[in-house]
Write a protein that binds this DNA or RNA. Structure first.
Lengths: 260, 260
DNA sequence: ACAGCGTGTCCAGTATATAGGACAACGCGA
DNA sequence: TCGCGTTGTCCTATATACTGGACACGCTGT
């Protein structure tokens, strides 16, 4: 649970570490928290938490609502805007995801690796009732997803084995994925640039993905649709080709930008 | 320049304050900076800056590029996503701005007050060559903008006077805005819900705005277009009505959400 | 070659930020 | 009514985070 530092021992903690703990805590919670709750969750003394939350609120990084609960503030949003402007992948990816979800009516996502995990970088829910719940920034084992198979494309089997912890091959259902068949998926994905999986992270979902590549051809992110597992094959194939087109568009737009 | 604390004196600074200074510094700069540059800009010892930047990078709040320059990192983006999800105004406002810019081909913005200043919360450049440069999150005196006139709507003259510093009535051109005529603008804006100004913050720009209101009818934000000052009246009026419709749509959507 | 400048790392001393607890005020249930 | 848990504020002591400086290194221009 402790994403950052301090676990069992109790030496004095640094203010900065507290800041990071607080922000991570709010990110996980996704909704405003009282200072009491925060200090319990991050195991910090109440007095310290009050102090630090107040300072962060003063700087606009947190905001305190009228029930005295703290959550992220405007400053964070402005910082993120600067980050976004510096990241062509996210900029282009976001607008394609919005377009894909609108045009095809299915939940679309931009996915990428963060360390040795898979995560959703942006998501737009589709029009249909079938809704997927993966939150932005939540880390998921690579083998649980279609995108994960594309994202490790181009790596050697040894590199892949070194990257992914063994326990990540065990699905939520309890079933374990065979490493060799995973490798076979990766290789096919690298060739076709698209991947489809059914009932992997959960039994109801079919995951369609296409890889976005950097100027050297390495996969750096994926666009994907989440659709019901019982969708028709023809529909899935059609969506895959739309994903592939959109991904190619982003890949070339980014290479062009880099060239300037 | 010093947006937060420490100015001339040199008592030992807190880690947290350094963190805030660093983030504000990068936000102003809008592009990656070397640690040396950061420490000079925020007047912090190099050794401290190295330490703190490294810790923030470890937490993903900053990222260090291959030229050893620091900038915002993924974590900030994830925090901002949670913030955005908690802010109906920004959520709806952003999508309307994207739509307005796309449909009408002009630069569109979502604007709001931060303390006693006006700021742009989101912006989408238009298709035309005429581009405005206001950056997200930069604070601007209220009297310099059409939106500012709408945003103080509903306040008494005394409240307005207390809110806006006298020096903010001096335009970049050197001209000073008369307080009474400013008040008259505010009152007309409150009635019409829209406002147009020409050549205010700069001589080439015409600023069109419409107010978004909370459930009690108080202006909380504006949608606006930035167009060339020499645009035709008919065109401006048409755009104003589009802004007004979009703003009304957001106002009622938010009231509805609140009612649930 | 050399001087001058910026970078990245390391160290030790001390100013001070944090922990911890005491306190009053509050809300809630019995 | 009286406990009991939680909240927000304030205080003091001390463990330590920050500072300042030294050092080695790699530039660049002369």
């Amino acid at each position: 649970m402790d994403t950052t530092t301090a676990d069992s021992a109790l030496p004095r903690a640094r203010g900065i570490d507290r800041v990071i703990d607080i922000l991570e805590c709010l990110k996980e919670n996704r909704t405003p928290m009282t200072i009491g709750d925060i200090s319990r969750k991050i195991r910090a003394p109440r007095s310290s938490t009050y102090e630090i939350v107040a300072r962060l609120a003063e700087a606009g990084m947190l905001e305190i609502d009228n029930a005295n609960r703290a959550f992220f503030g405007r400053a964070i949003y402005f910082y993120a805007d600067a980050y976004l402007a510096s990241q062509p992948l996210l900029r282009h990816g976001r607008s394609e995801v919005l377009r894909l979800a609108k045009v095809h009516g299915e939940t679309a996502q931009l996915c990428m690796l963060v360390g040795n995990k898979y995560t959703v970088g942006f998501m737009q829910p589709g029009a249909s009732l079938f809704r997927i719940i993966s939150e932005i920034g939540v880390l998921v084992p690579i083998p649980w997803t279609a995108s994960g198979r594309l994202l490790v494309g181009g790596m050697t089997p040894d590199e892949i084995h070194a990257l992914i912890p063994d326990e990540d091959f065990r699905l939520p259902s309890g079933r374990t994925i065979d490493f060799d068949s995973f490798l076979a998926d990766v290789e096919r994905g690298m060739k076709a640039n698209v991947m489809m999986t059914v009932g992997l992270s959960d039994t109801y979902t079919c995951c369609l993905a296409a890889a976005i590549r950097d100027e050297r051809g390495h996969p750096i992110a994926t666009l994907c649709f989440m659709i019901p597992a019982n969708s028709e094959q023809a529909r899935a194939q059609e969506l895959l080709s739309h994903l592939n087109e959109a991904a190619a568009r982003i890949s070339s737009a980014m290479s062009r930008e880099l060239a300037e």
